[in-house]
């Protein structure tokens, strides 16, 4: 018995558990436990300056019966959906070019170039879009410079582009671009090139080979890219605040208002949990549809 225990301690599994435990415990304490706390708080009552630890569904009732919440949730989902569509759509050709159009020694350099903007100050990048799209911004002053905008131009007044869903979507699409490119690139890299040659040898055109071989095999990357862009964009705080000018709040702005200035943390928690559940449900439906679609495709 002792010998068995000792051999288990020397086994791969025991070594693995010993190694994984520091990061795992850290993630349990500072990620899982806090998320569980949100869940618990969403069922607590809000007192004045305190939280009363009694079970109630009041926060969820208040959340879902509030038309403002529904408008904001629908807007967040719409913006995130639009951003995902644009980002993944624009990213696919880039990923394809990186994987099929470049010599192997050039790939790392291109990926580095694409990821750099992603790692540089998010706040400042978002603010620069405000500068580009603003009333006196880069686009308007350029159009004025070439005479399209002005008393004698095609358009009398500078374009009003900020404070719109489109401007928010453009800014977010720019911010999340590399997130969409990398997963697609990885799945394209995994494709066995001889499959493509086989397709063409058997008389398929290049385009048909792409549709019937490359695209289905790249789908896992597209799915990953979709989720990795959609989920964080639903919860984006900075862009609606800066580009939407506070007039186009999304879910994160609503949550922030409840958590900090309004100090109704149970309600803020209920809003967060509700939004997260909706997003999770959408993600599961998307994954299910995709699996079904791909199976039928075979």
């Amino acid at each position: 018995m002792a010998a068995k225990g000792e051999s288990w301690l020397r086994s791969d599994a025991a070594q693995g558990y010993a190694l994984i435990s520091p990061p795992a415990i850290y993630a349990l304490l500072l990620l899982a436990a806090p998320l569980a706390t949100i869940l618990a708080y969403s069922f607590f009552k809000d007192g004045y300056l305190t939280v009363i630890h009694e079970f109630t569904l009041q926060n969820y009732l208040a959340t879902w019966s509030d038309p403002i919440f529904r408008v904001i949730l629908v807007r967040s989902l719409f913006v995130a959906g639009l951003v995902t569509l644009v980002t993944v759509g624009l990213a696919f050709p880039i990923a394809y070019y990186l994987s099929f159009g470049l010599a192997p020694n050039q790939k790392a350099r291109w990926i580095f170039l694409i990821t750099i903007p992603f790692w540089t100050s998010y706040l400042i990048r978002v603010f620069l879009w405000k500068v580009i799209l603003g009333y006196n911004g880069v686009i308007n002053s350029a159009l004025e410079g070439i005479g399209i905008i002005g008393p004698n131009g095609l358009i009398a007044d500078p374009l009003q582009m900020l404070n719109s869903v489109g401007a928010i979507a453009l800014t977010l699409a720019h911010a999340y671009a590399p997130f969409a490119i990398l997963p697609i690139f990885v799945s394209l890299e995994k494709i066995d090139r001889s499959l493509l040659e086989a397709g063409q040898d058997l008389g398929e055109s290049r385009w048909r080979t792409f549709l019937r071989v490359t695209l289905p095999l790249a789908m896992p990357g597209v799915v990953a890219a979709t989720l990795i862009v959609f989920i964080p964009t639903v919860g984006d705080y900075v862009t609606p605040e800066l580009i939407g000018g506070g007039k186009m709040p999304m879910v994160a702005n609503l949550i922030q208002a409840q958590m900090l200035p309004l100090d109704n943390r149970p309600l803020g928690s209920a809003i967060a949990v509700s939004s997260l559940l909706v997003v999770a449900a959408l993600a599961l439906v998307f994954l299910w549809l995709n699996r079904r679609f791909l199976k039928v495709g075979k």
Binding site: P34, P232, V234, G235, Y237, I255, M259
Partner: peptide
């Protein structure tokens, strides 16, 4: 990596 940052921010604030 996929969770919106605001969830981490607010949940840690609560804790």
């Amino acid at each position: 990596m996929v969770l919106p940052d605001i969830l981490m921010g607010m949940s840690l604030l609560l804790v």
